[in-house]
Design a binder for these strands. Structure first.
Lengths: 140, 140
DNA sequence: GTGAGGATGCAAATCATTCTCAAGTGTCAG
DNA sequence: CTGACACTTGAGAATGATTTGCATCCTCAC
């Protein structure tokens, strides 16, 4: 079976090796935001011989091809997710590590406006929220 | 002379050593966002014997006391600035590395609202914009 | 002034990530 | 189908930022 990411790789003309197919599949099947070690562990379930160096190389390749996105939640590890047309951001539950994705057009517009007002053209940006679950409606 | 940060340390009851005073002074006098190596270099101009390990330890201490803030611009190094009551964010010029601080109440409000709508209480957040200077008014 | 707990300097250790290099593989032309 | 050639891979060493172990030194409350 050809994973969605593998399909994108082929369309971009990337040379497909068994290892890249495995990494592509792992990320296509993930619905979380695994770090490199987690990707490696999942990849080894498919190909026990795949090396961590190859995982790093494949992730970098996919990122440079804009097929996946690298996330940085400030804990010193890179996490990855399949790139999405729709721009979104992340809310990280600091108690459980759970990551909630959200989209907000107002924020997108504001960011652009802020950069513009500072006389800059916006190239990239990064927004993460860190929070804890509200127990009651009293919580702010 | 007692630097502003040293003053805050005293108020928080932190044990003050010569080295901590030096790091406090370096950060109080900085009006940029130095990384650890830069803090160390500046500190060594005051006390040539201060070790990088102590700089790391002092920075961590000050950060944990909420006296300074750690910034992460995604280049693998931590940068620091004096904590500011007024919450602000950073626009990084990806051509020059220059960092522009900005404040935007609408964004603050939006972040709070987004977290609230997701049933979370906002604890922390992080927003950085990366851009390049606009040459003409034509640029977006 | 003293002592106990904490801080420092140095070097070794960690951690994530990248690189080196020899050996293996995918792709494309023929 | 076959080979050439450039590109990949695995293993481990190297890197760069940061932390830690340990022996020694310093701060501060008493």
């Amino acid at each position: 079976m050809t994973s969605h990411i593998e399909q994108l790789c082929i369309e971009k003309g990337l040379k497909m090796t068994d290892q890249r197919r495995v990494v592509a599949r792992v990320l296509s099947e993930a619905n979380d935001h695994p770090d490199v070690e987690q990707v490696h562990i999942r990849a080894m379930r498919i190909d026990p011989n795949i090396s961590i160096a190859t995982v790093y190389r494949s992730l970098r390749l996919l990122e440079e091809a804009s097929i996946i996105e690298r996330l940085d939640f400030g804990d010193g590890r890179s996490r990855y997710e399949e790139a999405c047309e729709r721009h979104h951001h992340h809310l990280i539950d600091i108690q459980t590590g759970e990551v909630i994705e959200f989209i907000n057009d107002e924020i997108e517009e504001l960011k652009r406006k802020i950069a513009h007002d500072l006389n800059y053209r916006l190239i990239g940006h990064r927004l993460e929220l860190y929070g804890i679950k509200r127990r009651t409606d009293k919580d702010e």
